[in-house]
Simulated scan of single mutants.
Amino acid sequence: MNFFKNIYMYFFHKDKRKKVCIRDKKDKEIFYIIRFNKKEGLLSMFFKTMAYVEFAEEKGYIPIIDMKNYPTMYTQNENNGWENFFSQPNNLDIDLKEIYTNKNYIVSGFEDNPNVFINSSLFGGYFASNYFNNIQKKHFIESHFMLNGEIYKMIEEEMKQIDIKNKLGVFIRGTDYTSLKPKSHPI
């Protein structure tokens, strides 16, 4: 009997990048582990996270971001890099080791899954061109994520120093778009 309870069912997509581990089919709780490519920027990861969270919740999964076991350029030491900036979705306090050893989980692929990004009702196209869609996105983000407490304090301290009414905001991107010419990105 314990044999069936502890069966690991791993299966892979054609690109062998998605893993599923079902230990106990009776337990309906399934975690959806969101992982990223090491070379993605923070804003790209943030919007992809929103699409993945929306997808996971539609499927009845519990979304979790893992930048510890799947490190990115934001991972430091043994920490989950996501938590250097944000809370887990829905502000869950989850032990990744516990999930990987005792829970049912699905690990997302590195590639942009069309089921997530094309069919996503809010975040499939990342940016909305109309005001109503952007308001919906804002509400979704506010209801699912919070800044890390340390980051929030840093922003509050900075805001005390800045008279925002008399400042100009400048949007700066870290990628060299002139040399790299990434697809679908203006210079």
Rank of each mutant, 00 (worst) to 15 (best):
M45T: 01
K48R: 12
K48Y: 06
T49P: 01
M50I: 04
Y52V: 02
Y52K: 06
F55V: 15
F55I: 14
F55T: 15
E57L: 15
E57T: 15
E58Y: 14
G60L: 13
I62E: 07
I62Y: 02
P63M: 06
I64P: 01
I64K: 01
I65T: 03
M67A: 03
K68D: 00
P71T: 01
M73S: 12
Y74G: 07
T75M: 02
T75S: 11
Q76S: 09
N77P: 00
N79L: 05
N79R: 02
N80Q: 04
N80R: 03
W82G: 00
W82M: 01
E83Q: 11
N84G: 12
N84R: 09
S87H: 06
S87Y: 02
P89R: 02
N90D: 13
D93R: 07
D93K: 12
I94G: 02
K97L: 02
E98K: 10
E98H: 07
I99N: 05
Y100N: 06
T101C: 09
T101H: 08
N102A: 11
K103A: 13
Y105H: 11
V107A: 12
G109F: 08
G109K: 00
E111L: 08
E111S: 09
P114W: 08
V116F: 04
F117E: 05
F117G: 09
S121P: 14
L122E: 01
F123I: 06
F123W: 07
G124R: 00
G125L: 12
S129Q: 14
N130Y: 13
Y131M: 12
F132P: 00
Q136C: 14
K137P: 06
K138F: 14
H139V: 15
F140M: 05
F140E: 01
F140A: 07
H144T: 03
L147C: 08
N148G: 07
G149S: 11
E150C: 05
I151G: 10
M154F: 06
M154Y: 08
M154T: 07
I155K: 03
I155D: 08
E156F: 00
M159P: 00
M159K: 08
M159Q: 09
K160W: 02
K160T: 08
K160F: 05
Q161E: 10
I164K: 10
K165D: 15
K167A: 13
K167M: 14
L168W: 11
G169T: 11
V170Q: 08
V170I: 15
